[in-house]
Amino acid sequence: MADTQANDAFDDELLSAYVDGELSGDQAAQVEQRLSVDPKAKQLVEEMRALSDTLQAMPCETANKDLREAVLQRTVTLPREGRATRGVRRWGWAAMALAAGLLLMVFQPTEERDGQPLASVDASRKEAAEPAPEWQASMAADAEVDEEMLENEATFAKTVLPESSAAAVDMAEAAPTVPVVPIQEVHLVLAGGVAEFDKLLVSNGLVRVDRMQRKAAAQVGRARSLRMENRQLAAAMESKRKAAVVGEVLAEGTAEQMRNMLFAYQTDQRLYGEVSDDDREGGSVVGGARKLEAMERIQVLFILHPAQQTAKPAAASKKARSREKVGGKEG
């Protein structure tokens, strides 16, 4: 019974393909034979043809405006991911793979198995030389920037990215990226939800990088310069007490966009919660010791902490380390 129903469904698909002229000669002959003896099949074909006629009769919508100038105006300021960048990126990924392999080799716990010490060492070396498949697949995909990347990224974004943030999914699908500079890390106190933070990224033109690339970044090692957006948080970090984390977001954009986003973040109490004037700092800190060009693309890993779980304010501290700037020296 199930087989019969399955066969019927399959056969009806052929009817649809027959309407479209997408069958081979043998298949078309098979369908025509069926149409000659099956009035229901014939009716279905006629209905599908009528449906096609209806849709094809829809008027053609035109924009009634020249999009050319609008598009060209937007593209004139955008950097294309050119061949030079791709070459540097390939080399960059290769270097990161090597570094990751070395890191894994260094930190791989040594195990001796009876009668097979060499095998375990070899296994660990092999494991170290081969990063986690997921990361490796990501790197391999990024190293070959071609149409396949575009094909895979939309599927990947749908299946891997968290569903909680539609904006993040949208941005990841719309503008997938690869890192162009080492990752910077910024700790933020978040009074609002992660979804609100996502909106802040989106509204400032930043792109949320997919989870796979975040893992790659984490394994390679982040730049150690940290920016503490809240003195309470800074105190907690300094006292080695781990502040709770509600989320990690790897975002990419230009330095200008990052500055604007951080400024908006600091001035929006819904996100930042109560802040003192001392904690407010304009968007000018991105860059640090090395001045970043406004359009220079950077990636920042935002570690988000809930406002209510940060440590109580430490006694007035003038430790400069808590106010290191993004892009500054490694600490």
Binding site: V71, P79, R80, R83, V145, D146, L150, A175
Partner: peptide, 11 residues
């Protein structure tokens, strides 16, 4: 169109 422009090298 903008994304196509940005990604044109991958085409």
């Amino acid at each position: 169109f903008v994304q196509a422009f940005v990604k044109l090298d991958s085409f």
